[in-house]
Design a protein around this nucleic acid. Structure first.
Length: 276
DNA sequence: CCTGAAACCTGTCTGC
DNA sequence: TGCAGACAGGTTTCAG
């Protein structure tokens, strides 16, 4: 479900409210309850529950696809939504969502619920967030992320460009949807070897990545099924999920293939296949 | 270093 | 209608 834009929209809603989601910044946690033990990656579920009471959520941020809760005393909660995770703020009194895996009860009577049908999502509660986030590549929307940085990350890599865009060590936050959209916008075939890209092509890819991610955020993400009323980007996808349909740019039929075990959508005319 | 397969899970949709 | 199979926005681990 969530890639960088979706996680960013959730982080903003939790930080400052809006779109019906109430902010949790500044809230104090009364208790934590783990309903599916494997949801907690660190520490043990029992320790997780006993460490929460009394802690304040000082701020909310994002790093790659990780949601980051800054707590007092140097503690951090890191949340990865993986495929189907979702965060909901609701009154303590009402019924939990169907796939609630963990929740935090706040002093003010609200409850932050982690709902996750497929159970892939993970939480960490730690004083050493770098141990979890340290391997991540640069933030694509950070001013420090320039075409030169992207070129350096791809230098000497013979893997297919699509696979590298999905590799969080190369670049943090891009997932299957935005990778396909960016490659189409840049006119690059997903099977191109990274090392074969020219400087101009890397710059085009850099521009395309930033554009699709920013547009995703501006439209509140691609998904439609969580707390904030988002998801408008879904109507703006140019290749993802459109195989068999007509390319808006050139009229050719969008095709689909498998790259790095992921469905990959592209336009055979806009994104010419490498000679190789 | 690179690729592919499998595993972790549940829900939904498609085709027969 | 029923049921098998494919597929899903992610990541880790392992084999070759």
């Amino acid at each position: 479900m969530p890639e960088l834009p979706e996680v960013e929209v959730i982080a903003r809603a939790l930080r400052q409210g809006g779109r019906g989601a109430s902010a949790i910044r500044g809230a104090r946690v009364r208790a934590a309850r783990v309903l599916w033990p494997r949801t907690v990656a660190e520490p043990t579920p029992a320790a997780f529950q006993s460490l929460w009471p009394g802690r304040t959520i000082v701020d909310v941020g994002r790093r790659g696809k990780f949601l980051r809760l800054y707590l007092d005393d140097g503690w951090h909660a890191l949340v990865h939504l993986r495929m189907s995770g979702d965060l909901v703020v609701q009154p303590t009194g009402i019924a939990l969502p169907r796939h609630a895996r963990l929740y935090l009860d706040l002093d003010d009577g609200r409850r932050l619920v982690f709902n996750d049908p497929r159970k892939f999502g993970r939480w960490w509660l730690t004083r050493d967030p770098a141990a979890v986030l340290g391997h991540l590549g640069p933030e694509p929307l950070d001013p420090a992320f320039t075409p030169a940085v992207l070129a350096q990350r791809l230098r000497g890599r013979r893997a297919r460009i699509k696979a590298l865009l999905l590799d969080q060590r190369v670049l943090a936050g891009v997932g299957n949807i935005y990778a396909d959209e960016a490659l189409h916008r840049a006119g690059l075939h997903p099977l191109r070897r990274a090392a074969s890209l020219t400087a101009a092509e890397i710059t085009a890819l850099w521009r395309a990545l930033r554009a699709v991610l920013q547009e995703g955020i501006a439209r509140n993400g691609t998904s439609i099924d969580w707390m904030y009323q988002g998801g408008a980007y879904q109507q703006h996808l140019r290749v993802y999920g459109r195989h068999g349909q007509v390319c808006y740019t050139c009229g050719e039929r969008i095709q689909r293939l498998r790259v790095a075990q992921r469905s990959t959508h592209f336009c055979p005319r806009c994104q010419p296949r490498p000679a190789e």
